[in-house]
Simulated scan of single mutants.
Amino acid sequence: MTEELLRAPAEVKYAEELDWLESVDDAPKPFSWRLSPAMVRTFILGSERSDKLERDIAPKWFGDRTFVERSIVTLASDRGLLLIGDPGTGKSWLAELLAAAICRNSTLVVQGTAGTTEDHIKYSWNVSMVIAKGQSRESMIPSPIMTAMEGGVIGRFEELTRSTSDVQDALISILSEKYVSVPELDTDNIVFAKPGFSIIATANSRDRGVNDLSSALKRRFNFVRIPVVTNKKSEAEIVRFRTAELLRRHEIELEVPPTLLDILLQSFADLRAAAAAAGSDDEKLESALSTAEQIGVLEDAILHSQFFGDRTLRAQTLAASMVGSLVRRSPEDLSILNKFWHGVIEPRSKQEEGSPWEGFLEGGREAIATLS
């Protein structure tokens, strides 16, 4: 089935693994959870020897286990969970994995935007049915959040701070009272949440000030801040994991040389250091320089090599993809990258003559010149 989907949700992609974990899980489970808290952690972070499982479970999210454990404990309580962090830190992926492991449904999602309304959180009406038969439960269209309430499962709210304050306020009664009133109906006009219902929301820390959360809503969420991955080993694991998925999905047989992966990781680390030392925002790239953006750069380079190259990933192609992905403001970002290439990449290529750094230097220069 997964081959027929452009992107299968986690509960479909890892269905066989989840079935097996559920079959061997005899630990107590909160509410109607499909897995125990410890097994949810194992599904997300991978198995260890101390788990004494008959098969290895590969990690799917790479980060400090305390973030995962606190998230699981929050969902086992009656509070909502808010994952907050910079773009590309894996908040949405962690939310999806948590929902998949806990209730085998990660698709009850509301996407927060300026156009999100209260109807997207509560309910709307099937106009044709209302005209024909009047307002009733049958003519009501429940939101993903209301569906999660009725099923006692996890509902997700992506980019909470992108939605307006009145939309955010609609969550307050849901999180505190655990029901939604339907005043248009005379009877059967309250939808109660069943045990197991909770909400996982995500928020971009760079959106602070767009639509700040009220103190009332903040009190109803436990905050888990997901930091940018700066550990090279962890970041390399994430990039390898995502790249392997990409190659499988596109059925591409192409090797990513370890030296090129090291160059990508080092370049992003140097750019982050330069951004941290910058005196103003004008001296920083608009890009968040996240692990997700590294994966995007590598994906672009792989696909370019597959379709327009000789199916060999080269340093020049990787550099061109990196410049093309990180330049979002012109001429500001171009100027920053030009200085970076001359001040950091060029000296490094001279120190390691004959290494892929030389090709990386040349590819980046050509890309910058093309965009200038």
Rank of each mutant, 00 (worst) to 15 (best):
E3P: 06
L6P: 03
R7D: 11
A15P: 03
E22N: 10
S23Q: 11
D25V: 09
A27G: 02
P28Y: 09
F31R: 06
L35F: 07
M39G: 04
V40C: 06
I44Y: 00
G46L: 04
D56E: 15
W61L: 04
V68Q: 02
R70A: 09
S71H: 05
I72D: 05
L75Q: 13
P87V: 11
S92F: 06
W93E: 13
L97G: 12
L97C: 04
C103N: 13
L108C: 04
V109R: 14
V110A: 05
A114D: 15
M140F: 13
P144I: 02
A148V: 02
G151V: 01
G151F: 00
G151L: 04
V153T: 14
G155N: 02
L160H: 01
L160Q: 00
D166M: 05
D166T: 05
D169W: 02
L175F: 11
D186Y: 12
D186P: 10
F192H: 15
A193G: 10
G196M: 11
T202A: 05
N211T: 07
S214F: 08
F221K: 02
N222A: 07
V224Y: 14
V228S: 09
T230E: 15
A236M: 14
T243Y: 02
E253S: 09
E255M: 14
I263N: 03
A269M: 04
A275D: 06
A276D: 12
A277E: 13
A278H: 10
A278Q: 12
S290E: 08
V297P: 07
L303F: 09
D310W: 08
R311T: 05
T317M: 09
L318P: 03
V327H: 07
S330K: 12
D333L: 08
D333R: 06
K339F: 12
H342T: 12
E346H: 10
P347A: 04
P347T: 10
P347S: 08
K350C: 06
E352K: 07
P356Q: 01
G364T: 00
L371V: 04
